[in-house]
Simulated assay, not measured.
Amino acid sequence: MAILSIQSHVAYGYVGNRSATFPLQRLGHDVWPVNTVQFSNHSGYGRWRGQVFEPSHVADVVGGIVERGVLAQCQAVLSGYMGDAATGAVILDTVAQVRAANPRALYCCDPVMGDVGRGIFVRPGIPEFMRERAVPAADIITPNQFELEYLTGRTIRTLEDALAAASAVRELGPKVVLVTSLQREGTAPGTIEMLAATQSGAWLVLTPLLPIQPPPNGAGDAVAALFLSHLLRGRDAGEALGETAASIFGIFSATHAAGARELQLIAAQEELVAPTRRFAVERVA
């Protein structure tokens, strides 16, 4: 299956397309990566080199793919860090072109905007674009807890809050919501949860929260790619959640064992296809 992935790129480390492309390929997908930025490394290091590409550059690259006459082969569009709100319009135009060529194609939007402790970290205009245009156009979204709160204007403290927020954001358009990091009242210390919600139900999985400092960047990008892959393979949201949680925990475990800052996607690649440890998925709605 072919997936068109439009997001950031770094030469060193694993975020954006560097975090999404290899896992998708290892799971058997043909990936067409289009980069919204090219940096030496992710911004978490405090210093980096490179540039945010102009929206016209992104559109030009996509246009070249269109000229190959292959859009009907594309099963999904995956978007992440956009770099600029104007690039978002190019992404949505690309989604429209893919859907015209293949009406069954899915759009998975990772609404990268911010996180707990950091707040909003993208350029002005991107959060509003995500809420008003990108999320309503998506079939699947993969926000973290902070992003879900922003999209819905709700504070999440309990499971009921999280379920209500997931329901509210689905009313904007997406059919499937994956909350990639959920920490709520009553959750055992040293653990973290992910929540998947659809019209037909909601599922929760809890895994250990490994003490990696600083937390590796790019985990959300890998999670979005893994979740999309499993949905494309015909798994329901609960099954896709379980597979995704098992694989990302395996990657985190290898990263922790190595004492590394960057996700150990290559060294621990078997965790993508045959995770060492699995976790119970609980249906909660």
Results as ranks from 00 to 15, higher is better:
residue 2 A to V: 09
residue 6 I to D: 00
residue 7 Q to H: 11
residue 7 Q to K: 03
residue 8 S to V: 02
residue 10 V to R: 01
residue 11 A to G: 02
residue 16 G to I: 01
residue 16 G to P: 01
residue 20 A to T: 06
residue 20 A to C: 07
residue 22 F to A: 10
residue 25 Q to W: 07
residue 30 D to Y: 13
residue 32 W to G: 01
residue 38 Q to M: 11
residue 40 S to P: 09
residue 42 H to V: 04
residue 44 G to W: 05
residue 49 R to Y: 09
residue 49 R to P: 00
residue 50 G to H: 03
residue 50 G to E: 02
residue 51 Q to D: 08
residue 52 V to Q: 05
residue 56 S to K: 12
residue 60 D to N: 09
residue 61 V to K: 00
residue 64 G to R: 08
residue 73 Q to R: 15
residue 77 V to F: 01
residue 82 M to L: 15
residue 86 A to Y: 01
residue 88 G to I: 02
residue 88 G to W: 01
residue 100 A to K: 14
residue 101 A to N: 09
residue 103 P to I: 07
residue 103 P to V: 08
residue 104 R to W: 03
residue 104 R to P: 00
residue 108 C to M: 05
residue 110 D to V: 06
residue 111 P to H: 13
residue 116 V to R: 13
residue 121 F to D: 04
residue 124 P to L: 10
residue 127 P to Q: 12
residue 127 P to F: 10
residue 129 F to I: 06
residue 138 A to R: 06
residue 140 I to E: 04
residue 142 T to L: 04
residue 144 N to T: 06
residue 149 E to P: 02
residue 150 Y to G: 04
residue 150 Y to E: 12
residue 150 Y to V: 15
residue 151 L to Y: 07
residue 152 T to D: 02
residue 155 T to R: 15
residue 163 L to N: 05
residue 167 S to R: 14
residue 168 A to Q: 10
residue 168 A to G: 06
residue 170 R to P: 00
residue 171 E to L: 12
residue 173 G to I: 02
residue 174 P to F: 02
residue 177 V to Y: 00
residue 178 L to I: 11
residue 186 G to A: 06
residue 189 P to S: 08
residue 189 P to G: 07
residue 197 A to D: 05
residue 199 Q to D: 14
residue 201 G to C: 12
residue 204 L to A: 10
residue 205 V to S: 03
residue 207 T to P: 03
residue 209 L to G: 07
residue 210 L to K: 05
residue 210 L to T: 09
residue 211 P to C: 06
residue 215 P to W: 11
residue 217 N to T: 14
residue 224 A to H: 09
residue 226 L to I: 08
residue 229 S to Y: 06
residue 232 L to T: 07
residue 236 D to H: 15
residue 240 A to K: 09
residue 242 G to D: 02
residue 243 E to H: 15
residue 243 E to Y: 13
residue 243 E to S: 13
residue 244 T to A: 04
residue 248 I to M: 14
residue 250 G to W: 03
residue 252 F to P: 00
residue 253 S to V: 08
residue 257 A to Q: 15
residue 258 A to G: 13
residue 260 A to Q: 11
residue 265 L to Q: 10
residue 267 A to S: 14
residue 269 Q to E: 14
residue 276 T to I: 11
residue 277 R to A: 11
residue 282 E to K: 15
residue 284 V to C: 08
